[in-house]
Amino acid sequence: MEYILIIISAVFVNNIVLAQFLGICPFLGVSNKINTAVGMSGAVTFVIVLATIVTYLIQVFILDKLGIGFMQTITFILIIAALVQMVEIILKKISQPLYQALGIFLPLITTNCAVLGVAILVIRKNYNLLEGVVYSAATAVGFGLALVILAGIREQYDLLDIPKGMKGVPISLVTAGILALAFMGFTGIVK
């Protein structure tokens, strides 16, 4: 039951993009086409879950043991950067199709604050490892959901007559705002 609550809360109520403002850059950057949006969400899901597991273990078995919790930021970002590189190399070796689908998104993920954000949030929320994994996967799904919805709407922009100053980023932001408004309807589902 608790896991279902975590999932619903992470996907809908506290949607990482629309309610917590993490991962806005890729949210605006790769939401032009549904295809790229799906690819990006796949890559992000993969990295977020992996990063959460590794950073959790490092926090519990190294940082907490040695009492150097203040090294969290610097350790986590280096782990994530290294992890992304490793995933890229491994994918290239073992699965060419998967690499071609996700490869171009991987370098962008290091600076996706959603990855570091989720890793830190899992520690701050005092989750255990399993809860952390469920939470990170659900968060990534929420990210993908928001991204794909926005991409679906943005594909229609070509057909519309948008004022010049609003073209590009501003209209996407306003659309995202209306999406966030819609997602606010979910608050209160989880008590």
């Binding site: 629309l18 309610a19 403002f21 932001l173 306003v174 995202a176 705002g177 209306i178 966030a180 408004l181 606010m184």
Partner: peptide, 8 residues
């Protein structure tokens, strides 16, 4: 003050 207002 809420999330949607930030985007808009």
């Amino acid at each position: 003050i809420l999330a949607p207002g930030a985007f808009i």
